[in-house]
Each structure stands twice: as C-alpha cells, then as structure tokens.
Design a protein around this nucleic acid. Structure first.
Length: 420
RNA sequence: GGUGGUGUCGCCUAGUGGCCGAGGGCGCACGCCUCGAAAGCGUGUGAUGGGGCAACUCAUCCGUGGGUUCAAAUCCCACCACCACCGCCA
C-alpha cells in the first residue's frame, strides 16, 4: 500500500511511477480528492461525537424535567452522530478500495516500459557447445525415469507431474542444498503453511477476488499460495518488532500452486510451467534505508546458488511494467536452456519496500521508539524448474546427466544414468 | 463435530450500563537518595487517525464484526483463537 502522507506531500512521485509502469496516473487525483473528502467528513464526525460525549455526562447528572429535555436532544444528536460516522466510514472505505489497487512506487533506477523492456545487467558463463544433438529436459527426464508427465496428467490433469527416483532425489538434493545455503548465511529455515487466509493473500499484494493465478477453497475461505513469500510476509503481520531484532531473514520451503490461467499453449511440454512445484525462498524484513543493500545481498546469494549448479545465466533488471503489484524493483536470474536457445527465469528477487508491510501492519521501533513500517524483500534460492536447467546443461551423449559437484553430496549420485 | 470456560495497556490483574476520560501490580524510562549500586520514594509509560511549526489537542481502539441504548469493557447476536472434557478420524 502507498503511504497517503507521502502522496499528499509529493503526488508527482506516484504519477511518474504510474507512467513508468504504463498505467493510469489519474488515480493520483482520484486519491487526493477522496482523501480530502474523507478528512473533512472525519473532522465533522469527531466534533459531533465530542459534543455527544459531553452531553451524555450532563444527562446522567440531570434530574426530572431537565433530564427529559436533555434526553430528547441527546437522541437527536445520537442519530446525527451515527450518520456522520457512517459517512466518514463510507469515504474511508472508498479511499481504501482505490488504494488497494495502486501498485508500489517503482525505484527510479528501474527501466521504464513493459515485459520486453528489461535491461541485461550481467551475463555469466557461455552456452555450452554440444558435439551431439542435445535432448530436452522431458526426454532426458523420461529416459532417467525421473519425470512422469503422463501419469501426472492422469491423476491430476495437465501441468501436473510426478518426480520419481533420481528425479525426486534431484529435487530433494537441490532444495536441501538451498536450505543449507540459506542457513549458512544466517537465514532461519521455515516450512510454511500453503493455505492462507484472504487478508494474508491480499496483504502480500495479490488480489484475492480478481487474480486468475490463485487457487481458491471457497468452502473454507482459504487460498493456496503461489509462493511461501505469502506466508512469510504474513508471519509478522500486526507485530511491532524490536529494532535490535533486525534484520529478520527467513528461508521458506513450500509447495507453490499456480493456476496458469491465460498461459494455454505456453510451455506445455515438461516441467517449465506447472500448477504445483516446490521452492526455497529467501524473505527479509529490514529497515527501509537498508532495503536496497539487502536486495543486492539476496541477488548475490542467488548468484552463488547458480554457480553451484554450473549453468550459464544472465541477470536482468525487470522493467517497471512487469514488476507486479508489490515490487519497487526486481532482478531475475535466467539460465540458458540449450534446446530452447534462450534464457529462462530461475530466480526472481524483489524489493517490496514498505508496500507489503503497510498492508500487513508489520512495524519496528526506530531510535526514538516510534513504530515505523519495515521493508520486505524476497528472492528465490531454488525451484523445481532448476531441474530443467540442470538436466539440459549437464547431459551427455548417452542420455546420462552429470550431477554438478556441489550438488553431489545432497543427491548422493555423481551421474544420473538412464533406466534400461 | 458437541458441551463448558477464557480472551482488558509489553506481562499479570481490577472492572456486572453513566464515579472507566480503563484502576492496581510487575517490567521499563527518568529523577531523588548513594562513593557507586540495591532498596525506598517520586514522575512518566500504548496504538491508529484528524488538526497544529510546536508544546499540545480531538476522535477511535478492552479478541473480531454487528446490534440494543441518550450513554457499552460491561447487555444481546455471530464469528475467531486458546484451554478442558466428550465424540470421530489417524
């Protein structure tokens, strides 16, 4: 959520941000007008309420006819107070409704534009030159008896799959390595709920009512998370955290669920785009002034993980229009996928500044003891999709796959051999 | 799933319609005292929003949301969480 006081003082900042995202900047004027009306309604309600309170005192002291007269006037005032309050609440509700739809203010350094306007910041490693025709990850996975899409579809439908044998071992090893990576860097490991209440989903920046990506359980008013970021953002909701406890760093392991509505026909083969996958996610709560540095830190940890699986990758600075609701800046690491001849997203790290914390009421005490909103950041350490990059980049002519050295202790195998 | 109980300021607690504009204790902060400390004594002690340059001031907040009333922590309804017991399942 945007800070209203900041908006009043510097509305042009939000206007510029909206334009960078390619979104409507007239919402600024809508907000300012509503805010003005809300404040004047609030002031008049408060004045009436103060009068009502003092009158209430006189009623209790008065006697006889005087009391009856006072009571009569108090009754009239009570109904006026009621409607003044209703008016103030109505306007507050309208303001909040608009406020809920306004995305975070983007960092000035973020590239303007849409999905294709990203800027490549770094490229690491060179795409491997094969002296044989490389197989795609699904063919490799099937030969290894590691990935079973057909039975996934039989049991659950399209975009579901089984990881089996070395496939299951590969994922467990990868995610365990990610967890260990995080623990060594001071993160607290967490296994999080995957079903959350609407306010948690909403607070993290997803629209419970409109978002087509969210799986819903309407009978229970619960929602399946698309990432443990949601649960970890909600973890400290409505808390005031002592300044000496900061920064708080968590590494969440969870299954993630995405409906992938509107992506029909995209990435239909294999496990690139699926309805359910597993992920280890970093999540930090820091003081707002430390957020940019924390963002670089999370990106650094992602780079270290990518180095461990030894795949070529690049880092992109996501354009403003592709940031999503909560992020002010986002860096993606994309790995080279040989059979696609292009880079695909393996990690994503977002600086959400105070946006999520304001919605979820996560605060800390500053030096003066005043509660202030924290900044939240998240970043990927490993996901099921990494298996695609590992299989394709480390395959050999016979269909076997060399396990990257750092991963071997976690997988317990040096080479994955095709099943007979 | 059922029955009963509980939910008040960081913690414990008082509070059964107007004296609650929430009292007390603990903790914490500051001051007095002391060579220093403890004890003792005194003062202060939350959040949100509005107004004000500010000191300050007004409103809201007693699990959450509704309702009754001139007036609600207090009465009524629903929900949530926790505890106990019963049932069911593993």
């Amino acid at each position: 959520m945007i800070d209203l006081r900041t908006l009043r003082e510097d509305p042009d900042r939000l206007r510029a941000s909206q334009r960078a995202r390619g979104e409507d900047d007239s919402v600024v004027d809508t907000l300012l007008a509503l805010d003005e009306r809300r404040r004047s309604a609030l002031t008049s309600f408060e004045a009436m309420r103060a009068e009502q309170k003092s009158m209430g005192k006189s009623v209790s002291k008065a006697q006889g006819e005087e009391k009856a007269a006072l009571l009569q006037r108090a009754k009239e005032l009570a109904s006026q107070v009621k409607s003044a309050e209703a008016e103030a609440e109505k306007l507050a509700g309208e303001l909040d409704e608009v406020l809920q739809t306004v995305p975070n203010i983007v960092e000035e350094a973020a590239p303007p534009g849409g999905e294709d306007d990203y800027v490549v910041l770094e490229t690491h490693g060179e795409p491997r030159v094969f002296d044989f025709e490389p197989k795609d990850h699904l063919e490799l996975g099937e030969r290894l008896d590691a990935i079973d899409m057909e039975r996934g579809a039989k049991v659950s439908g399209s975009r579901f799959f089984f990881l089996k044998g070395v496939g299951a071992r590969l994922q467990l090893g990868l995610l365990n390595m990610a967890m260990q990576h995080a623990i060594e860097r001071g993160f607290t490991p967490m296994i999080t709920p995957v079903l959350v209440k609407p306010e948690t989903m909403q607070g993290t920046g997803f629209h419970v009512a409109h978002d087509k990506e969210i799986y819903r359980l309407p009978d229970d008013d619960l929602y399946l998370v698309g990432t443990s970021e949601v649960s970890l953002a909600g973890y400290h909701a409505h808390e005031i955290i002592g300044g000496d406890e900061l920064p708080l760093r968590y590494a969440g392991w969870s299954s993630c669920f995405r409906r992938e509505a509107g992506s029909y026909g995209k990435d239909t083969r294999g496990i690139i785009r699926v309805h359910q996958f597993d992920k280890v996610e970093m999540f930090s709560y820091v003081r707002p002034e430390d957020a940019a540095a924390e963002h670089q830190r999370l990106l650094e940890y992602e780079k270290e993980m990518l180095a461990k699986i030894e795949v070529p990758y690049r880092i992109i600075d996501t354009a403003a229009g592709d940031l999503g609701m909560s992020a002010a800046r986002k860096f993606d690491c994309e790995a080279w996928i040989p059979t696609q001849g292009r880079y695909r997203e393996l990690t994503s790290t977002s600086n959400c500044t105070e946006f999520q914390a304001r919605r979820l009421a996560v605060r800390y005490r500053d030096k003066d003891g005043k509660p202030q909103h924290l900044a939240t950041l998240n970043g990927t350490l490993a996901t099921t999709r990494w298996i695609v990059a590992i299989l394709e980049n480390h395959q050999q002519a016979d269909g076997s796959v060399v396990v990257p050295a750092a991963l071997r202790p976690y997988v317990g195998l040096d080479v994955l051999e095709p099943a007979k």
